[in-house]
Measured scan of single mutants.
Amino acid sequence: SKGEELFTGVVPILVELDGDVNGHKFSVSGEGEGDATYGKLTLKFICTTGKLPVPWPTLVTTLSYGVQCFSRYPDHMKQHDFFKSAMPEGYVQERTIFFKDDGNYKTRAEVKFEGDTLVNRIELKGIDFKEDGNILGHKLEYNYNSHNVYIMADKQKNGIKVNFKIRHNIEDGSVQLADHYQQNTPIGDGPVLLPDNHYLSTQSALSKDPNEKRDHMVLLEFVTAAGITHGMDELYK
């Protein structure tokens, strides 16, 4: 796709999030870079409003799984890469995230190029959380598991539907599940690639910047598309 050509090198990323969870309002600002050749993201996020009212790991899918245009699609799968094909005009990404036995996040993001920078601007609203639950009670460990993110075409809306389940580790050794339902639709009216069913395999590492006084998260992530085999004719070339 034409959009794919915008991702040949390292691309700067800007992320802006405004959130409200159970009436606790907050903002997060992030910057870093993405390299789609390797499916690599390096980002640093800062809570610009003081202390973040929710655990950082609960925002990873909104912040970095928010820029799935940096996923590495192998050559034989490039015609299934909706995310890059929607660029530079970008796409709207909407999600509902259900935390098992707790509340939910609803998010709406616009992901697009502004100049040479890929920008992810998000509004997040969280409701029905227990004040002493795993999320508002800050009981999650500061780490992140690997996940597969399942993608299918949504021809009606000229976009994709995505769903997956995140496993958050809790300090007591148990797990907090979070079910994600995602819809992506193009902002522009140019042609986009509608994929066959496949998935993104994601690995994320969270860390801290020892010199950063503000509440923050440093993230390194690798994302690769998989799940579609080479056609038989490919094998015999």
Rank of each mutant, 00 (worst) to 15 (best):
Y199H: 07
I151T: 02
V21E: 00
L124R: 00
K157E: 14
N143H: 04
L200H: 02
Y181C: 11
F113L: 09
P195S: 04
K208N: 06
N158Y: 06
I187A: 14
D75V: 12
M152V: 13
F26L: 01
E4R: 14
D35H: 12
D189N: 07
L124Q: 00
V67E: 05
Q156H: 10
I187L: 14
I127S: 12
L235V: 11
Q68R: 01
D196V: 11
Y181N: 07
L193P: 07
T8P: 09
K51M: 10
E110K: 10
G159S: 09
N184I: 12
A225T: 05
M152R: 09
D215E: 07
S27N: 08
E31K: 13
N145K: 05
L220Q: 14
E234V: 10
N22T: 01
H80R: 05
F98V: 08
Q156L: 10
L193Q: 10
T224A: 11
E212V: 01
V21G: 00
Q183R: 13
E31V: 13
M77I: 07
E5R: 15
D179E: 13
D18H: 15
T107A: 06
N104I: 15
S204F: 01
G39D: 00
T58A: 05
L41P: 01
E221A: 01
Q156R: 10
G227W: 11
K40N: 08
K106R: 12
D209N: 03
A36T: 10
S85P: 03
L136R: 08
K208S: 09
F164H: 03
Y144S: 08
D102G: 04
P55S: 10
V10L: 05
K100N: 06
D189G: 11
I97V: 10
P12S: 01
R214H: 06
K155M: 09
G190A: 03
V10E: 04
K44M: 04
T58S: 14
N22K: 03
T107I: 02
H147R: 05
Q93R: 00
H230N: 13
G66V: 00
P210S: 07
K44E: 01
F222I: 08
N143I: 09
Y181F: 12
V60M: 01
